[in-house]
Structure formats: structure tokens, C-alpha cells
């Protein structure tokens, strides 16, 4: 018997981890393919990041959030992870790629790391 997945409850807003268990983001929105009747049939990709979340939230706040994020990212398109790269959907969504292979995912993280954190003494050392 086919198992059904409630996308609203079991997929949206779930934590996404890469193949090494490092956080990538949240499932902020979903991309569906539509057939020639205009009916969505297939899940194509998971959309991650403030652009996707902003568009989903909508309204003035959501649009502003998506707008700022697009400006910073230099592209209108949010980070999309094709379903082929999803390894497992459970209480978290696991990918079978590393976050390092998803350059858009870690852009702000890397920039802040290089420009701010690494310049403060001790920023690269763990405390334990």
C-alpha cells in the first residue's frame, strides 16, 4: 500500500541536514512540477532560505524579507535542492550531498566566518 506524506506536517519547516549531519537550513517552501493541465503532480525540489520563506510568508513583511535576501544573493531564485539529493525524510530531512557542494547554502555563513568571526582571536577554536 502506498504511504502518504502530509507535506504541510511532515516536510515543510523541517530541519535539513547534509550527509555529515551539518545543518543546511529549513524546508522553507516546495517546488512542484505542473503538467499541461496545470495540475501539480511531482515534487521537484525543496526550497531553502529567506527568499523562499519570505515568498511563502507573503504580505509586506514577507516581500521585504525576500527582497532583501534576493538583493544580497544577487539572484531572484532561492536555493533549490532537487529531490534526487534527498536521502531520507524523517523527523529531519537528510541529504546525500555535503553542504560544501551547495555554495549558495553557505554564502552568508562563510562571509560572516571569514570577515567577522575569524578576525576575532579564538574564533576558530572550539572551547572543548
Amino acid at each position: 500500500m502506498a504511504r502518504y506524506l502530509d507535506a504541510g506536517l511532515e516536510l515543510l519547516d523541517r530541519q535539513v541536514l547534509d550527509c555529515d549531519g551539518r545543518p543546511v537550513g529549513k524546508v522553507d517552501d516546495l517546488e512542484l512540477a505542473i503538467d499541461d493541465r496545470g495540475v501539480p503532480t511531482v515534487l521537484v525540489a525543496l526550497l531553502l532560505g529567506p527568499q523562499a520563506l519570505g515568498m511563502r510568508v507573503g504580505g509586506r513583511v514577507g516581500r521585504a524579507m525576500a527582497g532583501i535576501a534576493s538583493r544580497l544573493a544577487g539572484t531572484e531564485r532561492p536555493l533549490a535542492i532537487p529531490v534526487e539529493q534527498v536521502a531520507e525524510i524523517g523527523i529531519v530531512v537528510r541529504l546525500d550531498v555535503s553542504v560544501d557542494e551547495l555554495p549558495e547554502a553557505g554564502r552568508l555563513e562563510h562571509w560572516l566566518c571569514d570577515q567577522v568571526v575569524a578576525r576575532i582571536p579564538g574564533g576558530r577554536r572550539a572551547t572543548e
Binding site: P23, L53, L108, V116, V117, I120, G123, R125, T127, E128
Partner: peptide, 21 residues
């Protein structure tokens, strides 16, 4: 935790840059 960033005080600040900043 809301936005799904890496976080934590026990990791090196550089491994959780957005959280630390």
C-alpha cells in the same frame, strides 16, 4: 533554530558563524 542555522556554544564560533555573530 528557527532558520535552521548551525548553532552552539560548544562548537568553534567559526563553525556557527551566523549564530555567533
Amino acid at each position: 533554530q528557527h532558520f535552521g542555522w548551525s548553532w552552539g556554544k560548544s562548537v568553534a564560533p567559526s563553525s556557527a558563524a551566523r549564530f555567533s555573530v
